[in-house]
Design a protein around this nucleic acid. Sequence first.
DNA 1: CCGGATCCCAGGGGATACTG
DNA 2: CAGTATCCCCTGGGATCCGG
Lengths: 140, 140
Amino acid sequence: METVTENQEVTMTKKLEKMFGHLDYKNPPELCPVRDVMSVASDQWSILILLWLGYFPVLRFNKLKKYVYGISNKVLSQRLKVLEADGYISRKAYAEVPIRVEYSLTDFGKNYVKRLLSLAEWMQENSPKVLANREKYGLV
Amino acid sequence: METVTENQEVTMTKKLEKMFGHLDYKNPPELCPVRDVMSVASDQWSILILLWLGYFPVLRFNKLKKYVYGISNKVLSQRLKVLEADGYISRKAYAEVPIRVEYSLTDFGKNYVKRLLSLAEWMQENSPKVLANREKYGLV
DNA sequence: CCGGATCCCAGGGGATACTG
DNA sequence: CAGTATCCCCTGGGATCCGG
């Protein structure tokens, strides 16, 4: 088990101090855009979409739907729109018959996926631990 | 604008390849616990709860409710339960009158918050960019 | 045949009141 | 004080349909 040292804890607190100027509860939500931005980028479907787009440079709508297992047309379409609006992905439509639409990460999106990836890796390594905990806790 | 180099992109793909054995769409959901575990830990309320608990070593229910601005009793209570079950936080109840309950991060939770923090910092730095993008895109 | 818009419903979540 | 219980609403999301 990787433990957190005193030093790391101090560093962590400093970082948190720095950001909590923005996350401060005394600020009305409109002064705290981080929450808003983060809620889009940390949405469970968005994460999967972004990770798959990090793996395949270009994906079409129905391929994405296949990979992001269980997502519905509506949700996929809506998430893609928001992710495009926020600058993570770009959408390219070709006027063919039948129409072809290609989605890919922007440079900005790639930067984000790098971070996301670090989180996802940690999740992967630790999910057995979490599941064991959950079992032991007995929450159904 | 921080750009992604070729090298970084190759590294990223390798990492993704490594994890996509688990995230593979051909696996039924029950063989892919990462998604499940991640959906808890990346929930927008859970993130805020964990970050605040990273800042204050110990917080009581009503303090948390104050800091995690806008959360309802029901959701806070439910998220705390799940986060405890998954091993991120611990709950300590004191048999006083009135009752006192203290929440804090476990070592496991601290490790996770470190990762979360890196993501949150990136969000903070880049949220202006995202908001500008959103505006330009004209999505209401 | 592909991308996405529409319809419609269950249930997640907000507000409030209440109890150990 | 720390939650739970109740009510009700509203939106997230699944199934279905449609335009190009």
